[in-house]
Simulated assay, not measured.
Amino acid sequence: MMEKLSTTLLVICAVIVTGLLVRRELQPSDAASSAAEPVHVPEWQGYAAAGARMGPADAPVTIVVFSDFQCPACRVLAERLKTLRADRGRDVAVVYRHHPLRTHPHARMAARASECAGRQGRFEAMHDALFQAQSSIGTRAWDDISKEAGVGNLDEFGRCMKDAEMDSILVRDAAQAKQLGIDATPTFLINDTRLVGAFPLATLNRHIDRALRAARR
């Protein structure tokens, strides 16, 4: 009886600990939380000038996301931004910038894979495929994920994955992340407003409405 009770308590404790770890991953770090209030970034257009654009070039609202393909909160935000783009049509575009965290050992290679898919016009499809495969990143072959993303030339993709030039993209994005004082993912700009975390759709919509009003003045 005592042995059964001990086993039950261990299972309960394991569930609680797992829940706390998941919750921590889905929220900004403590360092980020203190800076999570919206911050005005007057030079925001410079951050939107580079990166992979998903959406129209003339969208009045551009969301520049510094993200990490192994970050659970980034996956949540990516899903919400996809919904927003579908709802908002040509009013909203997303620009993806890389900020792979050191705590995520495969994030840099995932970033490289997205850029290599982008060379074949499949960045957005690879972006979506990487987030959908997040739990298996690092255990599956990059070719397998690229096939799901519709990358046509796998030989070219493989050569690109070994191309040292791809590191320059990560260096560029890291420098701009540093300029913005980014220490957590996802950090993103909605035009000139910087935010940190996977905000609910209602909050994102409020910020987009504000940005639209300002853009149309």
Rank of each mutant, 00 (worst) to 15 (best):
H207Q: 15
D163A: 06
T62H: 10
S114N: 04
R194V: 00
L84F: 05
H127E: 08
A14K: 05
A211Y: 06
L204H: 12
Y96G: 03
T18L: 15
E115V: 12
D58S: 15
A52D: 10
R112I: 15
E148M: 15
A59H: 09
C116Q: 09
A117H: 08
V64S: 01
A129H: 01
A198L: 04
G51V: 05
A149C: 14
G158I: 03
E156I: 02
H40F: 12
T185Q: 06
M1I: 07
A86N: 13
G138N: 00
G158E: 11
C71F: 00
D192S: 14
P60R: 13
G19V: 08
K4S: 11
C13K: 06
R112T: 15
R119E: 14
G152Q: 15
V15Q: 04
E124I: 05
G181N: 03
Y96T: 12
P72D: 00
H106S: 05
A52H: 13
G51Y: 02
C74E: 00
V41C: 05
R206D: 13
R112K: 15
F123A: 06
T185R: 06
C116E: 08
R159G: 13
T203W: 10
D30Y: 04
D173P: 01
A57I: 10
W142L: 08
A86Y: 09
L10G: 10
R90A: 14
G46C: 04
C71A: 03
V65Q: 11
G46A: 11
D163R: 05
N191S: 14
V64E: 02
E124H: 12
I190P: 01
Q27H: 12
D91C: 10
Y47D: 02
V94E: 10
A215R: 15
A141G: 09
Q27C: 03
L170D: 04
L201I: 15
G55R: 08
D144V: 10
L84M: 10
I190Y: 02
T8I: 13
L10P: 05
A32I: 07
R97A: 03
L81Q: 02
Q120L: 12
N205C: 05
M54G: 03
Q179H: 06
A59I: 10
V92D: 04
H98V: 04
E25W: 06
G138C: 01
S67L: 00
A59D: 07
G121N: 14
V65T: 13
L180F: 02
R206I: 07
T203H: 11
P28I: 08
K4I: 11
V39I: 12
D192V: 08
M161L: 15
V61I: 14
D163M: 07
P186T: 03
D163I: 07
R112Q: 12
G19Q: 10
S135T: 07
T203C: 04
E156S: 09
C71Q: 01
A14F: 12
G89E: 06
S168M: 09
R85S: 07
Q70T: 00
P60G: 13
M1T: 11
L20K: 09
